[in-house]
Amino acid sequence: MSISYELSGRTRQKQRTRSALVAAARDLVTRGQTPTVDAAAATASISRTTAYRYFPNQRALLVAAHPEIEASSLLPEAAPSDVAARLDAVVMAFLHLIVDTEAQQRTMLRLSLDPDPGNRSELPLRKGRAIGWIGEALSPLRGVMSERDLRRLIFAIRSAAGIEALVWLTDIAGLSRKDAVQLMRWSAGALLRSALADAGVVGHQVRPPRRAKASSRRRSSS
């Protein structure tokens, strides 16, 4: 359905209808099904004709049914300054999110394997939000290691922790979800320790850089 249709006339009713279809699709996914527009319409007690006005095909419905993660950060409010503790907090929050929405994550992973690049570009799994979250956790390393090495570390951690790794560890390696999460957590920490060793950093007590304004105040008062 076009956005202009949603925004024209009786917008609240249309939003409720759309939300009902999305909720129905998510419910079907959690039951282990890959919902069609027809199935979502039947579950939501909405006519097929109406449903197709909102979602012209199954793909559009599945993308809409993916959990919306608007958080710009996964760090706790009182974020630790130690880089290892920061990374562990973010990785665990990310992994709990993946496990809690595993059915939807698996559906999106399947869609991301579409051979047509045009069909993959707008998928939530392709937005790179996890890269941003991990990058924020590792921000104290800026200036400690090169941007190239830091980016490589971020990518390495993301490749070791996420729905892709969870699928392999549970479906192929046969681990329980609890053990899979702990292994991904360990892998992230091991990658960080290796990168710190390569950079010649002793220990993990790498603090965030001080703000320039605060530094200038200290210099002027000395």
Rank of each mutant, 00 (worst) to 15 (best):
I3L: 15
R12H: 13
Q13G: 15
Q13I: 15
Q15L: 15
Q15N: 10
T17V: 15
A20P: 05
L21W: 08
L21S: 03
A23D: 14
A23W: 09
V29W: 10
G32T: 09
G32E: 03
S47N: 08
T49K: 08
F55Q: 04
P56F: 11
N57Q: 02
R59H: 11
L61M: 07
L61R: 01
L61C: 07
L62H: 02
L62R: 04
V63M: 06
A71I: 10
S72C: 06
S73L: 04
P76D: 04
E77K: 09
E77I: 08
A78H: 11
P80L: 13
S81W: 04
M92I: 12
F94G: 00
L97N: 02
I98K: 02
A103I: 05
Q105A: 12
Q105C: 06
R110Q: 11
L113E: 13
N119P: 02
R126P: 03
K127G: 06
G128M: 00
A130P: 01
W133G: 00
E136Y: 00
E136K: 03
A137R: 00
S146I: 06
R151C: 01
R151E: 00
A160S: 08
G162K: 02
E164K: 07
E164A: 12
L166A: 12
L166Q: 11
L166Y: 10
W168H: 08
L169V: 08
I172N: 04
A173V: 08
G174E: 04
S176M: 07
A180Q: 03
V181E: 00
V181F: 01
Q182P: 02
Q182E: 12
R185M: 05
W186P: 03
R193G: 14
A197I: 05
G200D: 08
G203E: 08
H204E: 06
R211V: 07
A214D: 15
S215P: 06
S222E: 10
